[in-house]
Amino acid sequence: MVIMLIGNKRGATGALLVYDITRRDTFNQMTTWLEDARQHCNSNMVIMLIGNKSDLESRREVKKEEGEAFAREHGLVFMETSAKTAANVEEAFINTAKEIYEKIQEGER
Rank of each mutant, 00 (worst) to 15 (best):
M1F: 07
V2H: 08
L5P: 02
I6S: 00
N8T: 11
N8Q: 09
K9I: 11
R10T: 10
R10D: 11
R10N: 13
R10V: 12
G11A: 11
G11E: 14
T13P: 02
T13Q: 07
A15I: 10
L16N: 05
V18F: 04
Y19S: 06
R23A: 10
R23L: 07
R23M: 09
R24M: 12
F27V: 14
Q29A: 13
M30W: 04
T31A: 15
T31W: 07
W33A: 02
E35R: 11
D36R: 08
D36V: 03
D36Y: 06
Q39E: 10
Q39S: 10
H40R: 11
C41H: 00
C41S: 13
N42Y: 02
N42K: 01
N44F: 04
V46P: 05
V46Q: 04
I47V: 14
M48A: 14
L49R: 07
I50T: 00
I50N: 01
G51P: 02
G51D: 03
N52D: 07
N52F: 00
D55K: 01
L56I: 03
L56V: 06
S58P: 01
R59N: 12
E61C: 15
E61H: 10
E61N: 12
V62F: 07
E65F: 02
G67T: 08
R72W: 05
R72C: 13
E73L: 09
V77H: 09
F78G: 04
T81N: 07
A83R: 00
K84H: 06
K84Y: 06
A86W: 08
V89A: 05
E91Y: 06
A92Q: 01
F93Q: 06
F93P: 02
N95F: 12
T96V: 14
I100C: 03
E102A: 15
I104K: 01
R109W: 07
